[in-house]
Each structure stands twice: as C-alpha cells, then as structure tokens.
Nucleic acid binder design. Structure first.
Length: 701
RNA sequence: GGCGCGGUAGCUCAGGUGGUUAGAGCGUUGGAUUCAUAACCCAAAGGUCGGGGGUUCAACUCCCCCCCGCGCUACCA
C-alpha cells in the first residue's frame, strides 16, 4: 500500500453483451471507476481506463435462440447499445473494446498457451452430456430438466430460474436437450483445468496477509471464505462452438471458458489501445489524454510493470474471478502483475426489491437516457450519493427526485445562479475586483482551500459517497457565505465591498467547476463555459484567484431543473407495468414432457397417505422428517419442504405419496417414498390433497 | 447447517488501531431572509448504536452466545 506507483491501469467490469445493462451495474462498477479515473487524470497521473463488451459464453447463443437470430447479431446489437449508453453517461474510457476482436483471441490464446507450455494446466476427462442427434456436447444452458430443488420442470443445466439455485446438468431430473428435445447421453470429453489449489499459499500471502488492511471488508471476507473453503481445479475450456478456439490440435470443437477469456479482455483492450494510437487509426480507442509517441508494446508497461498500480472495479458477483482466478492466471504466467486493489461494490436494490432485467424490475441505462436525455449527471449524482460501498443499498425514484431538487437544484445550481445573477446585476457580468478582506472572507477562502484535499483523500480511498457529499458541502460553503455577507443589501451603500464578496463567490464557483468534474462532467463543462475558465488541474482547485478580475462571464443557463412529482410517478408506474408484463410473458406453463406409454405410467404406485408426524431435521434448512400412514404401513419420508411448511402445518394432512420409489438415505435417515407437490409460479410448494377425506392407501390412477 | 458481509435517528447512510454531551443528508418543527428554480441560511426535536453476557478505569468500536437480512455452500427421490 505504501508502495509508490508510476502509472495506473484501471479496469471496469466488461459488461456481458447478452442484453441491456441497468443502473445497478452503473452503481457497482462504472460510475465509481469513472470518478476515480477522471480524478487521476486531473492530478496528472499516468492512467489508462479500459473496458469493453464480453461477448462469449453460452448465454450469447442462448439469447440468440430466444431472439431468433445469430450470436453475432446479438453481440453487435448489445455492444452498440451499451457502448452508446456509456458514452451518453460520460464514461471516459480510453478504450471500449470487444472480446470478439481478433487481437483478443490472440491474447487469450497466448496466455492459455503460456500456461499450457509451462505445464501448469492439468488435463482431465469427464463425462458430459452429449446430444447424439445434433452431434454436439451440450453446454449447461442447453440442457433442461426438472429442478431437483424446487421441482420446476424447465430448469436450465446451470441454474433454475424458478428457485434461483445454481445447478450442474447432472443434477437435473429427466434431462433433455433443448436442441433436439431428446435425452442427452453422457460421453467422455477432455478438458484443461487450472489447479487453483496449488496457488493457495500464494493467495494466502498475497490477499490474506498483505491486503488485510487496504481491501474492503466485503471483498477481503469473500476471498477468505473461498480460500478457506478449499480451492479446486477450475475448467478453463468448454465444449462449445461460440468463443475462442483452444489453441491445441487435440482440442477440436473446444473453446476457452468465457471466464478465462473475459478478464483477459482488459489486456487485449490495452493492446488495442496502443496499437490504434500507434497506427493513428482509432477504431475502438478514445484516448482521453495525449499518450505521446505510443509504441505498440507500451501496453506491457501497464500490465507487466511492477511500478504499475492495477485496480479492478467490479460488482460483488465478480469478486471470485477478479481476486482469485484471474490473479492466479496472471501470476502463473510469471509475466503479469496482479491487482493492487479490487474495490468491489455490493448490489443496489430498486424500490425494495432486487434489480433484475429479466424480471422487469430495473432501470435500464437506455431507458433512463430516453426519458431523461439531458440529465446524465443527475443519475450519476443520485447513484454516487447512494453507492452500495459497504452493503447493499437502495435506489428509489423519490430519492432520485429529492437528490435532484434538494441538492443539485437547491444547493449547487442555486449557489452558482445566485453568484452569477448578482454579478450580472451589479457588475455588468464581469468578475469584480477583490479588495480588502474581512474575517468572513478569509474564513470562506480558508474553507475553500481545504476542500480539494478533502475530496481527493476520499476518492483515493474509494469512498465515493463521502467525496460526493464533500463536493456538495463546498457549494454549501458558498451559500452560507452569501447569506452571511448579504451583498444585495450592501449594494445600496458599498459597491466595492459587494465586488469583493462576489469575486470570492465566483472563485468558489470556479473551484467547484474543477472538483465536480469527476462526478458531474457535463455540469463541469457547462460551469466552465459559463465562467470562462479552461481546463484547470486539480492542484489549482481551492485557490482564491482562478478567475481574473475584469474577465467576462458567459451565458448562464440553469445547471439543473426541478423534477416534478408527475414525472416521478410516471416512472414508478412504468416500473410496475413492466414488471407485470414480464411476469405474464416469462411464465408460461412448463411445456409438456415427452410422451410415455400407459405401461410407463402404471409403474408408478401413487397413493394418498396421511402425515401422522412431522419434525424438523437437525442441521438442515430444507428437510422435514415425516411419518406417513400409507395404508400399507407407516413409513418415514424425508421431504425438502421445510422452507415452505412448519411441522404442525402438515401434521394430519392427507397428501399424495409415491410409495414404490426405491428407498434412499438422506441425512443418514432412510427415506421410503416421495411426497408429491405442486410448484406454483412464485416457486412456493402446495400439498396435493384429495378433495374429500379418503382412506389412507387409496390408489391414484 | 457451514463460511462471509451487514443490522446505528422517520428514511438513505458515515462512524482507522476502544476515550469528553454518537454524526451527515433528506424528512419534521421553529426562526431569519428575499440575490436566487418558495430556493438559501440558522436552530431544535428525534437514537436502550439488533438482543444478552464478558474484558476494561472506559465499548457503537474488542471477545462469546442468540435473533434478523443478504450472498456463497450442503441436505431436497
């Protein structure tokens, strides 16, 4: 931490190009990283800021199927959408690249080969599901079946969207291929693994020991949890036809695992940045400062120089990849540096519920921009003041309105407007002279001089909320100064004095135009234009003489405008409407299973039984141990319903039971049968009882 | 169940290595003011710092137990 660095490489999580991105993503990674980088640039640091679209992985072809198009069309569409939104929100990347670019394929393959040639990857063959009809291995996402956790009949092989559980394809009951609809078969396939466990001592030393102090508790804690749980080999390749080819002859039809190639995208983007600057042909690069005579190899300084400080900005869902897997990859090559900090944020909720594009409960970037095209800074501010830095936070439209009306308009906009209007009124819109200073003036200037350092200290320690609050406090200093000096009263008697006061007020405004740039870049631009100041470095902020007496002020439009209640109400209504639409659209009844014969059916012995006794199972959250009168006998059945029913809710109830299911031991107890349940749309379980009381053992047919 | 992160004013959140009357913004109430987008400025009310033990001269801050929320993970035939 005390180490001194010559340059910075700052990355923001590569957004996955399978759909639009919402304001939670902005709050997690993009806004903080942009503030950080803009600040570094103002202080003259050598920094590059890289990002780009993550365009591989199984979800892309999956989304293509959903939209009835090609993977290429999907990534082009969402790359364009996300790229445009970022631009309109003021994200100041030096390059926004794409992982589908050839240079990224090359970089990823080089790093894979570097690990392979050093003998650091292990090869392992395992049985994976294969669709003999389509003649391909099935990615997790292409296998559907019954969720073993909630019984949802259309769960994906990696996740059940009904109950949210993470799954592996082998766990699915009655797996089916989504390509052919047939049952897949298990087939042997070889993959390359990175044995993370070999790096445990290094990870302990690097993270647990040397970053205990400077990494955020939420990040450090999660790393610790992973390391102590025991690391395992992680597959670096997949059987898939969408992605980066594994550069080995024996790996026909295999690609690099998307989580192997995605973070390498940062490196590829950096390479592309310097290649484009070097060649003078900018395609993805938008360098924000003069990179001088860039050479093609300059990227190496930013990824291999031990005097480079690497910072990854991500959301909490990415911690394990950015703190464990990717660093191990980089470290193992022996050539790359590892991150000095990973200031991951938690999640931002929305109006009391988790944000989710698929559930329609979100504010998508492009929708916000469509509805508030001239207000990117208002969103930046509302998010900045409520970033989930230490814990999940919450965005509400009402809060958004309050932040705009009570702070941006009433404090910051109002102060600027007061200073400028008074200057127009008494001094023909020219900066008046600063004459003899009184105590109140000195106090204001003294306070002014403190703020830039205060704000800087907060930014440097990744406390962006605090930094933003300090920014607004500086505007408060200005308002207070005007309230104390009351220049509108003195104007009748002492215009010299008024001039001094307004000069100081305008100096505060000038400093504001500098220090607000990282947070509110569009506002900073307007304010600088208004005051006629150019681009000033951070170190000049806080000085009492940024504006020269006699210099003219320019047009002074209002920086912010009030947002009326009706606008906010409309947004809330829109949110609720979208959610309802999505619920209806995304929840058709599960499709019918494949046909069976009557003989198949008659193999099942389903009956009505009565639950005589139910008890919780020690050390289990989901299991109830039931004694069921089946008419034939009284038997023990273990049932995963404890999260839906308490024991006394089910005791005495008649239920449907599959009695001829092979017994199996669960949590050390033999379970003899299975209670059948209906799973409702919301994932809740319902008992299936006869319409009227029947004798235990009644056969269902 | 295990591991991790949280539980601080009505709301959203701050509170390195324990130390005088626990903070900010918003909201509420009162005052002052009119240059300003009825904005600004001042002041007040409001908290058993999740609960209970313990260490200490002293704990929101350290230790133990419990409760609640979130995440990962295991049991679900």
């Amino acid at each position: 931490m005390t180490k001194s660095f010559k340059r910075y490489t700052v990355t923001a999580a590569l957004p996955y190009a399978n759909g639009p991105k919402h304001i939670g993503h902005l709050a997690g990674a993009y806004i903080p990283s942009d503030v950080y980088v803009r600040y570094l640039r103002l202080t003259g640091q050598d920094v590059i800021f890289v990002c780009g679209s993550d365009e591989h992985g199984t979800a892309i072809p999956n989304q293509a199927l959903k939209e009835n198009t090609t993977p290429r069309a999907i990534i082009d569409k969402y790359d364009d959408l996300i790229r445009t939104c970022f631009e309109h929100l003021g994200m100041s990347f030096d390059i926004y690249h794409r992982t589908s670019e050839p240079i990224h394929h090359q970089t990823s393959q080089e790093i894979f080969l570097s690990l392979y040639n050093k003998g650091l990857l292990t090869e392992e063959s395992s049985e994976q599901y294969f669709d003999p009809e389509a003649n391909v291995f099935l990615a997790d996402r292409y296998i559907v079946g019954t969720c073993p956790k909630c019984g949802h009949t259309n769960a994906y092989g990696d996740q059940c969207e009904k109950c949210g559980s993470t799954l592996s394809p082998r766990e699915l009951i009655n797996p089916r291929s989504t390509l052919s609809g047939k049952s897949p078969v298990l087939k042997l396939t070889k993959h390359w693994y990175l044995p993370l466990e070999n790096y445990e001592p290094w990870l302990r030393e690097w993270i647990l020991k040397s970053h205990q102090e400077d990494w955020k508790p939420n990040v450090y804690g999660q790393c610790k949890s992973w390391i102590e749980a025991g690391l395992q080999p992680r597959a670096m390749t997949r059987d898939l036809d969408w992605g980066i080819k594994v550069p080995l002859k024996e790996a026909e039809g295999k690609v690099l695992y998307v989580w192997f190639d995605a973070p390498i995208g940062y490196i590829s983007a950096t390479r592309a940045l310097f290649e484009e600057v070097h060649s003078g042909q900018l395609k993805f690069a938008t360098p924000r400062r003069d990179l001088g005579k860039a050479s093609k190899d300059d990227w190496k300084k930013y990824w291999q120089g031990s005097d480079t400080r690497l910072i990854h900005f991500i959301g909490k869902d990415n911690i394990v990849f950015h703190c464990i897997i990717f660093p191990v990859m980089l470290h193992a090559t022996g050539e790359y540096i590892v991150p000095d900090n990973v200031p991951a944020n938690e999640f931002m909720n929305l109006e009391g519920d988790k944000m989710s594009t698929s559930r329609g409960w979100s504010i998508e970037m492009h929708e916000y921009l469509a509805d508030f095209p001239d207000k990117p800074d208002v969103l930046r501010y509302a998010l900045l003041t409520n970033l989930p830095e230490a814990k999940d936070s919450e965005f509400t439209w009402k809060d958004f309105q309050a932040k705009n009306n009570n702070e941006l308009v009433a404090i910051l906009g109002n102060f600027i407007n007061r200073a400028v209007v008074l200057t127009q009124k008494y001094f023909e819109n020219k900066v008046p002279l600063q004459k003899n200073l009184q105590a109140v003036d000195k106090k204001a200037l003294e306070e002014l001089s403190q703020y830039p350092a205060k704000i800087a200290a907060s930014i440097e320690t990744f406390r962006f909320r605090e930094a933003t609050a300090n920014l607004m406090d500086l505007a408060r200093v200005g308002n207070k100064y005007l309230a104390e000096t009351e220049p509108w009263k003195l104007a009748k008697t002492d215009l010299n004095r008024v001039g001094t006061i307004l000069n100081i007020a305008l100096q505060i405004a000038a400093s504001l135009s500098v220090v607000c740039e990282p947070f509110l870049p569009f506002t900073a631009r307007k304010l600088k234009d208004m005051l006629g100041v150019g681009e000033l470095p951070w170190e000049q902020a806080g000085q009492p003489d940024l504006l020269r007496a006699g210099s003219a002020l320019y047009d002074a439009p209002l920086l912010f405008e009030k947002i009326e209640d009706a606008v906010i109400e409309a947004q809330i209504k829109k949110l609720l409407d979208t959610k309802r639409t999505m619920e209806l659209a995304s929840q058709p009844a599960a499709p019918a299973k494949t046909e069976i014969s009557f003989d198949d059916f008659s193999k099942l012995d389903v009956r009505i039984g009565t639950i005589l006794k139910a008890e919780r199972v020690d050390k289990s959250k989901k299991l109830l141990k039931l004694q069921v009168d089946t008419g034939l006998d009284v038997r023990t059945v273990m049932s995963g319903i404890a999260e839906h029913f308490s024991p006394d809710q089910v005791e005495g109830k008649q239920v449907t039971i599959l009695v001829n299911l092979a017994p199996r031991k669960i949590m050390g107890v033999e379970s003899q049968g299975m209670i059948l349940m209906a799973t409702d749309k919301d994932g809740s379980l319902k008992l299936i009882s006869p319409g009227e009381q029947v004798s235990p053992g009644s056969v269902i047919s």
